[in-house]
Design a protein around this nucleic acid. Structure first.
Lengths: 240, 240
DNA sequence: CAGTAAAAATTGGTAGTACCAATTTGAAAT
DNA sequence: ATTTCAAATTGGTACTACCAATTTTTACTG
């Protein structure tokens, strides 16, 4: 009766061996970002599992963004996790586990933190780029509006020097593109909200120039205040 | 020369068909959380691809948390995305794309937002639970300290009513468990930081009771102020 | 008829082989 | 030394077979 419980545990799905192997090699320093993995046929030999199982793991890591598969060339360790986040989030969204309100709440928190961190880390060059974008935003077509808006937020995210936050913000932006296009377009183009957003963007820029975190706070609140307001008005019109 | 560029695009990897199919069925209402997917052999017939390719997609969705595979039973749509986040984050961490500082910055932003949202959404029951945890935290063993600390933060996250933020926070907690155990233990057990954390936890609780967002802000700043301080002291000692 | 136990069918898990498609490598030709 | 082209490498897909866990059906027993 002693080892009855243990028997259950021994089983480990094959593909986990691949993931564990890769993690181990990374820790050991044998693999690093950019490294080429052993060929699939080779891996299946090394780990004593079928190429089938190896591929299931590889494919997963591929979609997760850990590796990049190139037919004929090989599998390479990369580190582009954005796709994965987007895929996950869009599934959560489709399954009605999250809604736009939750996404907006998350985004607000991250934009706030990104801006705060950017105040400490932004370069002179980035400030100039930002100034340019904000200026352009004042007189541009509806089409360019969205592009410039993304650029503005992306620049700030980058200036935060926090890749994790930047990636998540980027994923949220992609998600919004996929599912909430109309809302984004409306918010960015309706005359009244456009003015307020302009003020908010201006405030964000100024907070960076003056290194003023209180100003940053106000600007973000103004920015998402108008978004949330529009959101409530359009609660039913969001496409699923 | 006209259709040269287009030829490149036509190819679509097989497994994407599966993911697209599932998304479509969800949109159409034929699949929902808890639904059983068609059997793998059946799917491969429906989509006109090999079971191999189907499985690669299924395995990916499995690890991503979209579905849950049960040998002999079938594949079921679930929606447990935490594992995926943990796996992604731990890979990013291993590949040195992110460090503890970035994780802490992200966590601070999310804890802040969670607490703010919780102020609006927390139930009386959750407040009582929280009060209990905070009280227990005052006189407990080092071992229980970590468990109670997690429980406190988890309760607040849950009270925020934002599943997305809750999931990410949980993933961050798991990540810290995996890679930064020692630091967590030290922060939670060293006498001086313990007192400050206690004050911070108290402040978080009080901010919820009094629905006071300024108090919440202060408490979070105190909480992560001491963590960041400890972090700087231990910058080199973090295990990789 | 109800309940139970055994057999059969279903379904995911793994393995192996074969061949295609893209890329890389290397040898041969200039 | 460069170019060209054939061969080898490597990921992409398909098919088959069998194992293992689960579910469903069948048969039996009381």
């Amino acid at each position: 009766m002693g080892d009855k419980a243990e028997e259950k545990v021994t089983q480990q799905k094959s593909y986990t061996k691949v993931i564990d192997y890769i993690k181990l090699q990374i820790r050991a320093g044998n693999l690093t970002s950019g490294s080429k993995l052993p060929a699939e046929r080779e891996l299946s030999q090394i780990l004593g599992i079928s190429r089938n199982s190896v591929r299931e793991a590889i494919r997963t890591l591929d979609i997760m963004g850990v590796i990049s598969s190139q037919q004929g060339a090989g599998n390479y360790l990369t580190g582009n996790f954005e796709n994965n986040l987007v895929e996950s989030l869009s599934m959560m969204f489709l399954l009605n586990q999250i809604d736009y309100q939750q996404i907006s709440q998350l985004r607000r928190a991250l934009e706030m933190q990104a801006l705060t961190l950017a105040i400490d880390n932004i370069t002179e060059e980035q400030i100039q780029e930002l100034t340019l974008v904000v200026a352009e935003l004042e007189h541009t077509t509806e089409e360019n509006n969205i592009i410039l808006d993304k650029k503005l937020h992306y620049t700030i995210a980058t200036a935060s020097q926090n890749i994790l936050i930047t990636n998540i913000l980027q994923a949220l932006s992609d998600l919004i593109d996929q599912f909430i296009v109309d809302l984004r377009r409306e918010i960015l183009s309706s005359p009244d909200s456009k003015i307020i957003l302009q003020e908010a963007h201006n405030g964000m820029m100024l907070s960076l120039i003056h290194r003023d975190k209180n100003m940053a706070n106000e600007a973000i609140n103004k920015h998402f205040g108008i978004i949330d307001e529009k959101l409530r008005d359009n609660a039913d019109r969001i496409r699923r």
